[in-house]
């Protein structure tokens, strides 16, 4: 069972990400958070195996979440799932310690491709 935390301010997008994770395979134990603040609370409560986070959210963005996690000693594998995948954002994500960036729209195959190495 892989414990994943899905972070997105859109409830609908969280559902779509979760649906896609299930289509991608594996046995997921899913928790959800609506922004970085909620995500940080969930991580403090129980560290997941992987965090999948939107970039652009109210309260605390995905980038702020990643920075806060690292500052608090959480080295949890982290990937962005965001509507923009420009080279600049990919560079920024990598520099901050994200393992991958999945640009929306995504497919189960796309998820599998980037998550498989993380879970290996």
């Amino acid at each position: 069972m892989i414990r994943v935390l899905v972070v997105d301010d859109s409830r609908v997008m969280r559902q779509i990400v979760i649906r896609t994770l299930r289509q991608a395979g594996y046995d997921w134990e899913v928790r959800e958070a609506g922004n970085g603040v909620e995500a940080m609370a969930a991580i403090n409560d129980e560290e997941p195996d992987v965090v999948l986070s939107d970039w652009n959210m109210p309260e605390m963005s995905g980038m702020e979440l990643l920075t806060t996690m690292r500052a608090n000693g959480f080295e949890t594998p982290f990937g962005f799932v965001t509507s923009e995948g420009s080279p600049q954002m990919r560079e920024q994500a990598e520099a901050a310690g994200a393992l991958f960036l999945i640009a929306k729209p995504f497919t189960p195959e796309g998820f599998r491709e980037v998550i498989e190495p993380v879970l290996a």
Partner: peptide, 19 residues
Amino acid sequence: DIVDAFGEIANVVGGNVKS
């Protein structure tokens, strides 16, 4: 949910246009 979902479609299209 209808507003959320329709907004997300614009968000994804807009994010890709911005790219």
